[in-house]
Nucleic acid binder design. Structure first.
Lengths: 133, 133
DNA sequence: TTTAGATTTAGAATCATTCTAAATCTAAGT
DNA sequence: ACTTAGATTTAGAATGATTCTAAATCTAAA
């Protein structure tokens, strides 16, 4: 039995489907390069450019999200719902968090900035359990 | 009368002091390249590498903070106190916000992630007033 | 004044990402 | 099935940000 669920029909090309599959099956958030390496195993001829094209496409279609902090390459996330991140300042480990952000804080931030809100997230920086020993 | 305040004695080298001055005097958050351009006006011989070295040094010493979102170059911030950011998804405009984050949210995030907390910030993405017209 | 360590410099190198142009695929209409 | 137009993929070049390297210079302590 395979743990990997079939990807519902999204009208994706073969390569975009592979990229999405890799991201969905990953235990952690992968970089474009890691996604390329794993995609090649499922679809040997795929090119790096296609991985980037697919990431852009999937992001715009709302199937994945891009996460980037100061340090190096972006990472990609298959969670579609709003959530937050914790990042380790020592090893770079990235962890998803679900924090219930009170409506009044969201409203205050929108009012303060005068921006038309699209998304809002909390980022915690610190030491992960391993690095904190 | 000069609006620019003297930088207190931090034991900085000439070039690090210039980089810090440029960041402190800036109206908005600058990229490393913009900082280099402006630093050259105050200290013509300064090199790009030194700007990067200085930025790293000043960041580690806690005098400035680096802000980076997916899109392009990092920006540097002289505010030392905790604060949050709003970023325009269309033009990239970056605005500082001061949001009062309830202690229980901070505690919950630390507990949830199991990280030893160093900092926490809120990031709002959306359209700035100009781009929203 | 010597010396060791830190800093600066210029330019090369690296890394992530985007662009380009040609080849290939796909779907719609014949 | 055949044509065509548009979208997609490919390989590799190009770009942009940042870091590295090695030599020169500065600084502070002995």
């Amino acid at each position: 039995m395979n743990t990997k669920e079939k990807i519902e029909d999204l009208g994706l090309t073969k390569q975009r489907e592979v990229v999405l599959r890799v991201i969905r099956d990953a235990e952690q958030h992968l970089t474009a390069n890691e996604i390329f390496e794993q995609s090649k195993q499922l679809l040997p001829g795929i090119s790096f450019a296609t991985v980037y094209n697919s990431l852009r496409y999937l992001k715009e279609a709302g199937h994945i999200a891009e996460i980037s902090f100061g340090n190096g390459a972006s990472r990609f996330d298959s969670m579609t719902s709003r959530h937050d991140h914790a990042i380790c300042t020592k090893c770079g480990k990235l962890v998803d968090m679900e924090i219930d952000l009170p409506e009044e804080i969201v409203a205050f931030a929108a009012e303060f900035s005068k921006f038309k809100l699209e998304s809002i997230e909390l980022t915690l920086r610190g030491l992960c359990p391993e690095c904190n020993k």
